[in-house]
């Protein structure tokens, strides 16, 4: 089994670009703060997979260590983000982001 009949790295690039774009569209079309957080998770995951793929293809473990740290930060981010969403729901009884415009102007 040589390197020639493996999956090309460009397949991973295509797949991760598409997943990233799904996340971007989700952030743009949703009003629910929870759905926006989930779309952000989708984007983070596509980037993680791409980093791991490049790391495996170039035989460099630094990329996978980096993915590990990204996962750590993403977990912390979700914990804080959900706490903030709960707090928003307690004060406004809604998690619609369009009513949170007090800081806009």
């Amino acid at each position: 089994m040589n390197a020639l009949n493996s999956i090309p790295i460009s397949y991973y690039l295509m797949f991760c670009s598409m997943l990233f774009c799904i996340g971007v569209i989700g952030v743009l079309i949703k009003r629910n703060a929870l759905m926006i957080l989930m779309s952000i998770e989708l984007m983070i995951n596509s980037i993680n997979l791409l980093l791991a793929a490049f790391s495996a293809y170039s035989n460099d473990p630094a990329g996978q260590i980096f993915v590990f740290f990204i996962m750590v930060v993403a977990a912390a981010e979700v914990a804080i983000g959900l706490a903030i969403i709960v707090l928003i729901y307690k004060t406004t009884h809604s998690i619609d982001i369009d009513i949170l415009n007090k800081l806009k102007w």
Partner: peptide, 24 residues
Amino acid sequence: AGAMLGLVLIGVFRGYDLHLVQHP
């Protein structure tokens, strides 16, 4: 907007190939 971002990304990455050091 999302589809155009995807188009740009795929257009950039099309034909890119890493010189394989290692079989994954």
